[in-house]
Design a binder for these strands. Structure first.
Length: 212
DNA sequence: CGCCAGGGCCATA
DNA sequence: TATGGCCATGGC
């Protein structure tokens, strides 16, 4: 099932080459900024840095000033502290994701989860898109899509993640594009106010069936 | 005006 | 383990 859903999405959208970011560091910051927030508001925040969204620059400005830059993304007080903590942690690798090569994925994940403001989803995004590790991401869209398709899904985050990671090959490129496809598709058709009328997957979705 | 968005933390039972 | 309140801006 997981493979056929992927194939349907792939046939529609192809290879998306995510995450949308200029650098690995910008990707990580974006992962925090997008928490419960639209991507448009993340772009506004990133634009506020005018090209200076680097760990070196973030280190030298105050948390208050950082909070001011990211104001458009909401929750800016908490997110500013999280970005500060993340940046400090990233510094232990010299701000280069490649320097973490000899650290196994689970250790990296646990380290990320210790940072305040980084939960499981954000940690998995960072592992997958910045550190290029095969760590499947479960977000609100992933959960919603599979529920709406009519496939039973586990409640707990790790249980749901394990379904993907045990049934699919541990392939970073596959996990990357799968999550990208889910988000790109869902943000257009599977919001709380759905657009099943124009959805290319409506023919095999129980939810769309009821809504059409 | 109210609802919602690519979460996470903390208190509570 | 599982809810509920809270954090906050901007688009519709």
């Amino acid at each position: 099932m997981l493979v056929s859903v992927y194939n349907m999405l792939y046939d529609t959208y192809g290879s998306l080459n995510w995450w949308p970011a200029e650098t690995d560091y910008e990707m990580m910051v974006g992962a925090i900024l997008t928490q419960n927030t639209t991507w448009v508001n993340v772009e506004k925040s990133i634009a506020n840095f005018k090209g200076k969204l680097t760990p070196e620059y973030v280190n030298q400005i105050s948390t208050e000033r950082l909070a001011d830059y990211i104001r458009p993304s909401g929750f800016y007080t908490q997110k500013a502290e999280s970005i500060k903590a993340l940046t400090e942690w990233f510094g232990t690798f010299g701000y280069v994701t490649d320097n973490a090569e000899d650290v196994d994925t689970n250790s990296l994940r646990e380290a990320l989860l210790e940072l305040k403001g980084i939960g499981k989803e954000t940690a998995d995004c960072i592992l997958l898109y910045a550190f290029k590790r095969p760590s499947f991401v479960i977000d609100a869209y992933t959960r919603r899509i599979f529920e709406r398709l009519g496939l039973g899904v586990p409640t707990g985050y790790d249980d749901f993640r394990q379904v993907f990671m045990s049934l699919l090959p541990k392939d970073q490129g596959l996990y990357n594009n799968y999550h990208a496809l889910i988000v790109e598709h869902a943000k257009t058709y599977c919001n709380k106010v759905p657009k099943c009328e124009e959805c290319p997957l409506a023919s095999c979705c129980k939810y769309a069936e009821k809504h059409l």
